[in-house]
Design a binder for these strands. Structure first.
Lengths: 340, 340
DNA sequence: TTGTAAGCGTTATCAA
DNA sequence: TTGATAACGCTTACAA
């Protein structure tokens, strides 16, 4: 279709052997400066571009990294993507992007698709549904370098980049308590999620540290569907067990909370205080502005890409050690947790 | 690196010729059901996966579409991406994604990278800086199927998907006028942008239709940098030429307006009414909630992908005609344009 | 219905 | 310093 000239044709034009032209183009030391110049200028003149598939086939690498995220309309993941791309573009890597929409079946399909080596490596965050991880193990067993970020799986022996979820959730809950909350709910996603577990631990410990009892009814496991979440949160707010503080584990659950509260007589922060993990730049434009636990998304993306590319280009010196690297989040206090 | 078994090895294991195995795997009519079954089960047992580069090299197609967007943290572009991916995943296509960050130089680099055929086709929205388009023409001349959406360039004879920008801007401006505004500003991006031009036309015509004079000082050309935009908008609001209505051409300019207004004594919608092109789901959570012109982002993505994939799979029956397809936006009236 | 062989566009080995 | 050749893994004429 897109008919470009081949190396052979370029060589013919130059009355040189293909191998010579290839070496010249790759700036090999064995080629004279004179021919290099000739070759390069002719290549430009004829608009020659090396076929990436021939090269990938030959070299067994594609200069491509696959990124799998559970959600695209989410400032955290979008920023991580930007962070990955920043480094990737710099290093001449391409990004194959897949959105699982929090659907494990989709995740499995995508992961299986990547088994064929289309990408040199993978960086991913699992879905909130992901429980069984044989599909991920297969990936790793196949020798495909893989890095997890944020939502990780400890069972896969590789490097993971996360934030200090336990501390953040602990501090966030403590913050609510300090602001006068006495009954705090946790809104979160799937139980299997590493982030959910850590954040729940932090939340639990903060509650217990006050000498309070844990109320399982105050932990809500939400899902991908906004409408459903609004219903779930609405039921909690309408119940006799209504919390006066909420810690949302994901940005969209904070938004869902706003939407829910809007339909009631309740007010934030008067009746309910709200803090949420979120990288939304509009946090301070919400009504009221939202107190957030903001994750270092760009850095996470940067670090993932840097490590992966090092591993790909210098496999001897860099390994994807089975370790967890933590970059801390920041709490940004705003109106949604104010004492009025 | 990721060592998988090859077709030849699989064939050897089966004591069949590679060609037979290939045909069996591709469900060719020339192969008996019996061997097909044998081959498929052995392929599964040995975890065979066809090398995509060998196939791409051979077939001269990659089952990959490149998507170039100017911004990732933008609900419109994110939704378009989701729309494209929906169809692409369905049809077995992969997505190579590039963010230009509104930077033409980056756009040029990326476009030149794609000249080598890494992607079968391209769907893109140009940067707000893009003026000279030789890099885009080169792409098209090379025979690479390319589709534009939203921010298009008429000079490239291909199919473009846009929204009814003229009408939306006209209606949006009229809406502000109906709500009592008498001095309306337009916040937009690059002058060369197709969307800017159309929206400006709509805005202009609405103003003129009232018998009012156009004030060039009321059109602000903003940029990618939030801080700079806040400054620009702040200056306008502090000037003697302060508008009482604003039409923002891009979501982030509405956000910048909120940020700016926050620092003044002014209030939305009392002193200034605001309407913006935006696909933000949090529009109704802002303070005050934002009246938006919401674009059919998902449909745009769907349509782009559908047409492109048809063109790629049935090149005879589908052509990327030099035409513009318009899908209309919807105005969602909220508090930011209320009469108080 | 299956097998043989050529070729897609590169790069690397070996020879000149 | 350059050239001939093989090989990467697949598909497709052409033969059998």
């Amino acid at each position: 279709m897109a008919g470009g000239i081949s190396l052979k044709e370029l060589a013919a034009e130059l009355k040189l052997a293909p191998s010579t032209v290839s070496r010249a183009l790759n700036d090999s030391y064995e080629i004279s400066e004179a021919t290099k110049k000739k070759v390069i200028s002719m290549a430009e003149k004829l608009n020659y571009h090396a076929n990436p598939f021939a090269r990938s086939l030959r070299e067994n690498k594609s200069k491509t990294i696959a990124v799998i995220i559970p959600e695209r309309i989410n400032n955290f993941f979008a920023q991580v993507m930007d962070g990955i791309e920043e480094i990737a573009q710099e290093q001449g890597y391409h990004l194959l992007v897949y959105n699982t929409h929090e659907d494990v079946e989709r995740e499995k399909k995508i992961v299986n698709l990547l088994l064929n080596g289309r990408a040199d490596a993978i960086v991913m965050s699992v879905t909130s549904q992901t429980s069984d991880i044989t599909h991920l193990l297969k990936l790793h067993d196949r020798g495909l370098p893989i890095i997890f970020f944020d939502r990780v799986r400890a069972e896969i022996p590789t490097t993971k980049f996360i934030t200090n979820d336990y501390e953040s959730a602990y501090e966030g809950t403590k913050h609510l308590i300090n602001q006068g909350c006495r009954k705090i709910a946790l809104l979160t996603l799937g139980k299997e999620l590493s982030t959910t577990k850590e954040r729940q631990r932090g939340y639990n410990d903060a509650i217990v540290s006050e000498g309070w009892d844990l109320d399982p009814g105050l932990t809500l496991y939400c899902c991908h569907d906004e409408e459903n979440n609004v219903k779930l949160i609405g039921d909690l707010l309408a119940s006799s067990n209504r919390p006066d503080g909420i810690l949302a584990s994901v940005e969209k659950l904070a938004f869902a909370t706003y939407q829910t509260v809007k339909r009631t007589e309740l007010r934030i922060p008067t009746d309910i205080k709200l803090i949420s993990f979120s990288n939304a730049s509009v946090a301070n434009l919400l009504n009221p502005s939202l107190t957030t636990i903001t994750q270092p998304a760009l850095s996470i993306g940067n670090e993932c890409a840097k490590l992966l590319i090092k591993k790909l280009t210098k496999p001897k010196n860099y390994d994807l050690l089975d370790q967890v690297i933590t970059i801390p989040s920041k709490i940004m206090v705003r109106e949604s947790t104010l004492i009025e």
